[in-house]
Simulated scan of single mutants.
Amino acid sequence: MKYLVMVQGTQADYEAMRGKPSEHSPVWSEKDMQSMFAFMQAVNDDLAESGELVDAQGLVEPARTRHVRAGKDGRPVITDGPYSETKELLAGYWVLECESLERVTEIAARVAQCPVPEGSPDYPVVIRPIDNGGGDVCG
Rank of each mutant, 00 (worst) to 15 (best):
R103W: 02
Y123Q: 05
G139P: 01
V137F: 09
T105G: 08
P129Q: 12
A108G: 10
N44L: 07
V126R: 10
F37Y: 15
Y93N: 03
D46L: 14
A48P: 02
F37K: 14
I130L: 12
A42I: 08
N132Q: 14
S120L: 01
A12S: 15
G134E: 04
V77G: 00
R18N: 15
K20N: 15
T86D: 02
E99H: 12
D131H: 05
M6W: 01
R75I: 03
N132G: 13
E23S: 07
Q57S: 10
V77D: 00
R103C: 08
K87L: 10
Q34W: 10
Q41L: 13
S22T: 15
L4V: 03
I78P: 01
R128D: 04
G119R: 08
D122I: 12
G74P: 03
D46G: 15
W94A: 10
G139C: 00
H24Q: 12
R75E: 05
R110P: 11
C114E: 14
K72F: 02
G51A: 09
T105W: 06
I127G: 03
N44F: 06
V5F: 04
I107W: 07
L53W: 05
T65Q: 11
G119W: 04
G58C: 06
T79V: 09
L59I: 00
M6T: 14
D46K: 15
A91M: 10
M36D: 04
L96E: 07
G139K: 13
C98W: 05
E30M: 09
S22N: 08
V7P: 01
Y83V: 01
P117I: 02
K2W: 11
E15P: 04
K31G: 06
G51L: 03
A91T: 01
V126I: 05
E52Y: 08
V5D: 08
M36G: 04
Q41P: 01
P115L: 14
T79A: 04
S35G: 03
P129R: 02
S25M: 11
E23L: 09
L59E: 00
G58A: 10
D45L: 11
E23G: 12
D80Y: 00
Q41R: 13
A63I: 00
F37D: 10
L96D: 07
Y3I: 08
T105Y: 02
V5P: 06
Y14L: 03
E99F: 04
C114P: 09
F39Q: 13
S50C: 09
R128H: 05
L59A: 00
G92L: 03
S22P: 11
E97H: 14
G133W: 03
K31Q: 12
V5E: 03
E106L: 05
F39A: 08
I127K: 05
G58Y: 02
P115V: 11
